[in-house]
Design a protein around this nucleic acid. Structure first.
Lengths: 337, 337
DNA sequence: ACTTGGCACTTGGGTGTGTCGAGTGCTAAC
DNA sequence: GTTAGCACTCGACACACCCAAGTGCCAAGT
């Protein structure tokens, strides 16, 4: 009863089940794969695999299906994901290069990923934390209304309109801008609040009051709140795979809709050696996703932002992993400009 | 065989079916409602209603269910939608007033609407076309890179980074800004392209080249493309009502995901006297939505932007219509500030 | 120490049959 | 125009049955 063959059997079971959606039996296995042994032997192997918790039988005397643990072992044993086909690669490249705008790039990316994998795609906007301050602008819209604009080195622009308690003059505003900009120009956004605090404390008394309001707005703009957006695509793919989700797809849709949940989910995923992270079914911390798997990876500078897909545990992991990795790479390249 | 009673029977059938999800028979009808007649009479009425295409029987000798045409008549006969309960009103108000930002307002609105109706909510961002130019700002980020910001009177801020063919000096840019701003300040966004054309033709030759690039960016910012976004919430509610969608919810999710489709759908809806528009099942031009109904209305200045919900044809129209109308009113009020 | 063929056993799924109840359409009487 | 009554239809449900696929285990073989 050799160890390698048992793993081979597991692999075969996973592949067949992913392909057919039906519990796979010992006989069918020897027919479809060239294991060099008889079905009885396979049965013995399967008994062991079941004991180890890698596969399970829905009911006595029926074929086996992989457990989450089984998928896990299967995924861990995929040493090299197969690369995409040449036309696929080309399609990715041309599609992404056609975008003119950060929003547009992200939008195209998420759609592409959904289409490529036939699953729900999720991309997180590039995190601004790692970027630095490129420019700050204050515009006086009305005597007590100021537009605060923050431009980051990664090209994101954020703005907010604030109301000041008292009137402020153009000249004062210009001076304020000059002082703050020189204090924080080039500063990492993550470090912005601290630097702003210092800058504010050094303001002359006359500017102090207005400065406070404005500095608070800048802090918010730099904060994680606003720019930690995620984009979704391909939710319709969930509906196609009804039956893969024993319960309903309701909880999954709910989770997808809660940006907070998805952000935490993505941020908790850590890559392994291959640079791709996989969460399988019950490994997922959120109850609603216990029937779903997530395949994700980082992209962009420092791989700080994430992107990935979500689908049924019974998914084609090798192909999905390849697609996710490829898209992340192309996206990183595009963003480098 | 009186006409008013037949309509009463239709109303009763719709209400019972919406409530129970099951075909309703003549006996059950007389039990649950105080029609003053016997089941046999109701049967005669139902036969007529069926002949008129207002109700149908899934199979011989089974209860009747309303057809789309039946729902239509039912909806048209709702003269006055019942107002929301006081606590509901209060909840709407406090929730929406807590928002600090246009994006935040819209986000809260769409979630609120989804929760209130237990259906999928859709809101379109306020259209900028009706608003006017409040401020324009150009910021030189790099020798050949300009940030163009357009602030509209409704508080929306849009920006884009453009690259110029040749270098431009701070001073030139300031002059350009001065000229363009004075030409288009207060102009309606819808009329902006025309005014920009005039302004550009009057630019001194030196500024002409750069002006073109920038003007084009401004036109795009004012255009419908960018700001015709929609927000979704409550897609999980679709899953709960499986069974209401004989086919799968896949096509519906697909339609929801295509912003273009939803925008056209909303824009095609015209209000009736009550200010609310309802599209029932097959009245919907998009195949995937033939099992769904849309209840929508306009909001904001000129009621140019739309908001509404989407659900199964078998929905509680009176309540839904009330909720949609109430939310639209509160939203309009908030936006007026 | 594994592998294999054989065999008894389990079980879900499909099919056929019978019954029940809700519901209809129709007719004749009110 | 309404009602009671009646024969009829048809889906839903329950039950019995069989079949195919699959299992576990044992004894024999290598």
């Amino acid at each position: 009863m050799s160890e390698p063959r048992r793993l081979e059997v597991l692999r075969a079971i996973v592949e067949d089940y992913v392909h057919s959606r039906e519990p796979v039996g010992s006989k069918a296995l020897v027919d479809r794969h060239q294991l060099g042994v008889s079905s009885a032997t396979i049965r013995n192997d399967m008994a062991v695999l079941e004991e180890e918790g890698l596969i399970a039988a829905p009911h006595t005397s029926s074929g086996r299906i992989p457990t989450d643990k089984g998928y896990r072992l299967f995924v861990d044993r995929i040493s090299e994901v197969k690369p995409l086909s040449a036309p696929e690669k080309k399609a990715i490249q041309t599609l992404l290069e056609g975008a003119d705008d950060l929003d547009d790039v992200m939008d195209r990316t998420v759609r592409l990923l959904a289409q490529l994998t036939n699953q729900v795609a999720v991309v997180q906007f590039p995190r601004v934390g790692g970027a630095s301050v490129r420019h700050i602008e204050f515009v006086l819209l009305a005597p007590q209304q100021i537009l605060v604009v923050l431009i980051a080195s990664n090209g994101t622009v954020q703005q907010r309109i604030v109301r000041t308690a008292a009137e402020i003059q153009e000249a004062e505003l210009a001076e304020l801008r000059q002082r703050i900009l020189s204090a924080v120009s080039g500063v990492k956004l993550a470090a912005l609040p601290a630097e702003l605090g210092v800058a504010q404390s050094q303001l002359p008394g006359a500017l102090r009051a207005h400065g406070g309001t404005i500095v608070r707005a800048l802090e918010q703009l730099a904060g994680v709140g606003r720019d930690d957006r995620i984009l979704l695509a391909g939710t319709a793919n969930l509906a196609r795979s009804t039956g893969d989700f024993p319960l309903s797809i309701g909880p999954i849709l709910e989770a997808l809709e809660e940006q907070v949940v998805m952000l935490r989910l993505l941020s908790e995923m850590e890559y392994d050696a291959r640079g791709i992270s996989v969460r399988i079914g019950s490994e997922n911390p959120y109850g609603g996703l216990s029937e779903a798997s997530v395949v994700a990876t980082g992209y962009g500078p420092g791989a700080g932002a994430k992107l990935g897909v979500l689908g049924p545990t019974r998914m084609d992991y090798p192909t999905t992993m390849a697609a996710v990795r490829a898209v992340a790479r192309y996206l990183s390249r595009i963003l480098e400009e």
